[in-house]
């Protein structure tokens, strides 16, 4: 972890040791660049970097690389998300080169939700690579200056590579070892699925520390507000890989209607405060789709950087 890959704001923030905040934004269903900028407005002020999803939930939106470019030109630090669901290895490597040429150096390599999760369940699923193979390919392009075929590149791309982590679903015991595999392939940072179960995260991080992985990669933990028990129920049944414990759903249910939004924010703040104390956690990743304002209030409330300065 000595080499600074990109000298970008995101990587520098992580390497400086400060508690980093990233936020996810969903590219709009629009060909108007202003709509992309609008999507970033609220959380862009708080985040060290903005993740731009790549057809998240297998729904069609403006492409990640295009939205990233628009945002990066407007001065935002972005993380280009790339999923293996829609492209074969030819398109993937082409896009990796293109991204680097456009100045997009932070790449989050994902497997991707299945096509059946989205608005085009009839689509052909590609998965020519899995996320680990995508990481390894990107790293080979960067370090060895060649395509997977062995053909030379005339200029090497620059990448700071990341992967996803989901400590909250089976096989629990395998999850830290999967991180190790992704690190071997080239991952230098991780962003996790929503955390609503801090105890589970703690035991995951214990194993991560035992393996020394927190020293080889930066780990950011996914967080986000719940709007009501209905959204909680939706997330845990319909969104792949999200676990919301009964206790939290119950807490939302018991709260009167007018107080639900505030309660969702409160739960999230509590989780962030606990997550922050876990050794090996480098930051948080805010996912607040259609609740950007609530996300911003949470980040105001926890006031991470001021706290950092006081330490």
């Amino acid at each position: 972890m000595i080499t600074n890959r990109t000298n970008g704001r995101f990587e520098n923030a992580l390497r400086s040791g400060k508690f980093v905040v990233t936020a996810e934004i969903s590219p709009p269903d629009s060909a108007d660049p202003h709509d992309v900028l609008k999507a970033a407005q609220v959380l862009g002020r708080y985040a060290d970097a903005l993740n731009v999803t790549d057809g998240s939930g297998a729904n069609c939106h403006i492409s990640s690389v295009a939205a990233c470019t628009i945002l990066s030109n407007a001065g935002y630090e972005v993380i280009f998300q790339m999923s293996c669901r829609d492209r074969n290895r030819i398109a993937m490597q082409a896009e990796l080169l293109g991204a680097s040429a456009l100045g997009l150096h932070n790449v989050l390599c994902l497997t991707g939700d299945d096509v059946t999760a989205g608005d085009h369940p009839q689509a052909k699923r590609v998965f020519d690579f899995d996320s680990t193979q995508l990481l390894q390919t990107a790293r080979i392009m960067r370090d060895d200056g060649m395509f997977l075929s062995g053909r030379k590149l005339s200029a090497k791309p620059r990448f700071f590579l990341g992967g996803a982590d989901n400590p909250f679903v089976e096989p629990f015991e395998f999850r830290p070892l999967r991180l190790a595999k992704k690190i071997q392939a080239g991952a230098e940072f991780f962003q996790s699925q929503y955390c609503f179960d801090v105890e589970r995260l703690k035991s995951h991080m214990q194993k991560v520390r035992d393996l020394g992985l927190h020293e080889k990669a930066f780990i950011l933990i996914g967080v986000g507000p719940l709007r009501s028990e209905k959204t909680a129920e939706f997330m845990r049944t319909k969104v792949p890989g999200v676990y919301v414990p009964d206790a939290i759903v119950e807490r939302m249910r018991k709260t009167p209607v007018q107080g639900k939004r505030a309660e969702g924010i409160k739960i999230c703040v509590e989780i962030i405060r606990q997550v922050r104390e876990i050794q090996g956690v480098a930051g948080i990743h805010m996912m607040a789709y259609k609740q950007e304002e609530a996300g911003a209030e949470i980040l105001d409330e926890v006031d991470l950087n001021i706290k950092e300065m006081m330490r």
Binding site: C84, R85, T111, G112, D113, D114, R125, F127, D130, S131, T132, Q133, A164, D165, N166, V169, E170, P171, F174, L177, R178, K181, A185, Q193, P240, G241
Partner: peptide, 11 residues
């Protein structure tokens, strides 16, 4: 998803 290196995050 024909994954060869471990489970996806959607289990």
């Amino acid at each position: 998803k024909n994954l060869r290196n471990g489970p996806c995050g959607g289990v």
